[in-house]
Design a protein around this nucleic acid. Structure first.
Lengths: 193, 193
DNA sequence: GCCGTTCCATACTGATGCGTATGGAGCCGG
DNA sequence: CCGGCTCCATACGCATCAGTATGGAACGGC
């Protein structure tokens, strides 16, 4: 009767990867603070006796979880669009790719909320640097001088980060069409023709 | 006798406003979670016996603190620039005003981190809506149609929110001059001439 | 000087989390 | 079929924080 949030139940035996998956989901849904041993154990239908067999500490779980995420994320976002040769089209493709990954947005927003944590701050910094560099390169190849390209990349990435934050409160109360229109204006404003 | 982290010490008697000030500072420095009764009491050099005389609960302190902030913030940011008649110049003035308020950025970032809290989410939503509306109006007066103005305002506000977040990790590792240059490009890109 | 109000200290309870210690159930190779 | 390995349950200890109960010090009005 009591809302148990999200219990997953099955599976006789858990693996470390199971804990990491549950941790990432909980991170996206309820933030890093909710990635706690006992609540996770309840969610998985076991007790923390199980957890401490797979991981030495909570920190180790978080470490493993975000490392996996960092790896997967780069592989699925930057790498595919990097193959587009035309820099403007590459940027547009990146924006199209990124703008629809809602689960990814939730995770990224949760990471920003925990940016003061020792494991999370450096992570977000690494990821952000890579992404900004990626976008900066594209703008340079599109004809901007180094300085202007860096500024434009900062602006674009800031807008992305801000959007992800605002999406949390449904602030841009937009329909799907309005959103597509926004993305269109976004690209037209930031990417020169 | 050992001084704890940022102890404020003096003052024989505290008022509710003293607690609210300490709460806002702690919010900016260490986030909402750090706005806890006992740590705050330690910071103020008293015990929580004092706190519970001034406030019925921790939530009441947070409520009072953010209400004061919301009021002061609107009065000090939007109201002054609203008097500028030319819409483009009004936007530029707003950007200039906002871009240098570091304490305000820290508070706003902390609020976003706690956006899932019942008191904070609606607050951020109210404030964001006001600001976006303010900017949208300016863009419309600058000649944009309603739809494009709304999109441009969303973009500008998202970039602001994202910047505030990124400033936390010193991500835009910029000198003062680089920052001014960025703000210049920011305005040139988003505000038509 | 007495007294009540203001402000705070002390000492609880209860909840929740991390981490540890230990034992026990099930399965698998010998 | 038995000892050992894997995986987990149970029961601790320890810490932190919200909130309560109660008493006490200082101070002003009378």
């Amino acid at each position: 009767m009591a809302t148990k949030i999200t219990k997953i139940e099955p599976k006789a035996h858990l693996s470390a990867a199971d804990w990491e998956r549950a941790a990432l989901e909980t991170l996206a849904e309820n933030g890093l603070a909710a990635v706690a041993v006992e609540p996770l154990a309840r969610r998985l239908g076991v007790t923390k006796g199980s957890f401490y067999w797979h991981f030495p500490t909570r920190e180790a779980l978080i470490q493993a979880t975000i490392e996996r995420w960092e790896h997967d994320d780069e592989e699925q976002v930057l790498a595919p669009t990097a193959t587009v040769t035309d820099p403007r089209e590459r940027l547009r493709e990146l924006i199209r790719q990124v703008s629809h990954k809602r689960q990814s947005h939730a995770i990224f927003a949760a990471l920003f909320k925990a940016i003061d944590q020792p494991l999370i701050g450096p992570l977000v910094e690494r990821v952000s640097q890579r992404r900004i560099d990626f976008v900066t390169d594209a703008f340079r190849q599109a004809g901007f001088d180094a300085n202007t390209a860096a500024n434009r990349a900062r602006l674009a990435y800031s807008a992305y980060v801000g959007f992800v934050q605002l999406a949390q409160i449904g602030q841009p109360r937009m329909t799907h069409e309005e959103f597509e229109d926004y993305i269109g204006d976004f690209m037209e404003t930031l990417i020169p023709r």
